[in-house]
Computed example of a mutant assay.
Amino acid sequence: MSSAAGSTLTEEGTDLDLQGRVLNSRPYKVVVWNDPVNLMSYVAWVFRSYFGHSREKAHQLMLQVHHEGRSVVASGPREKAERDVTALHGYGLQATLEESE
C-alpha cells in the first residue's frame, strides 16, 4: 500500500469522525405530552423544579401542553435531552425527544 493511499484512508476516517461529531452535536428537543392523569399545577411545578423555568414560563409551557397536546420544554445535546426525558418519566410525565431540524 502506498503512502498516498494511507493518507487518503486517514482523511476519510477523519471526515467520517467529523460527520459523526456534527450529527451528535445537533440539538434535540424535549417534548412533554398531555395526559389525563397529572394536575396542571403539578406539571408547572415540575417545569419550575427540574428545569428552573420561571413561574410564568412554566405556566405558559403547561398551558401549551394542555391546549395543544404537547410542548417543547427544553433542547440541547442528545445525551442531556435523554437525561431530561428520563427525569420527566420519573416525575410521571409523558416525554419524548425529537431531533431538531
Rank of each mutant, 00 (worst) to 15 (best):
M1Y: 09
M1Q: 10
S2L: 02
A4N: 12
A4R: 11
A5W: 00
S7M: 13
T10H: 14
T14E: 12
D15R: 14
D15G: 13
L16S: 08
L16N: 09
G20H: 10
R21I: 05
R21V: 15
N24T: 10
S25W: 11
P27M: 05
Y28D: 03
Y28L: 06
Y28S: 07
V30K: 01
V30H: 00
V30Y: 01
W33C: 00
W33N: 00
N34P: 03
D35Q: 07
P36Q: 08
P36C: 01
V37L: 14
N38D: 08
N38F: 02
M40R: 08
S41C: 00
Y42D: 10
Y42S: 12
V43C: 14
V43D: 12
W45Y: 10
R48Q: 14
R48F: 05
S49Y: 10
Y50T: 01
Y50H: 11
F51Y: 09
G52P: 06
H53Q: 02
R55N: 06
R55Y: 10
R55K: 15
R55E: 13
K57I: 07
K57S: 07
A58D: 08
H59A: 11
H59R: 14
Q60K: 11
Q60D: 13
Q60T: 12
M62Q: 12
L63R: 12
L63C: 04
V65Y: 06
H66V: 05
H67K: 10
E68K: 02
G69F: 04
G69I: 05
R70P: 04
V72W: 05
V73G: 01
A74G: 03
S75F: 02
G76I: 05
P77W: 14
K80H: 06
K80L: 11
A81S: 07
E82V: 14
V85A: 09
T86P: 01
L88P: 09
L88C: 03
G92F: 08
L93N: 12
Q94P: 05
A95G: 03
A95I: 05
T96F: 09
L97D: 08
L97Q: 07
L97H: 02
E99P: 07
E101H: 12
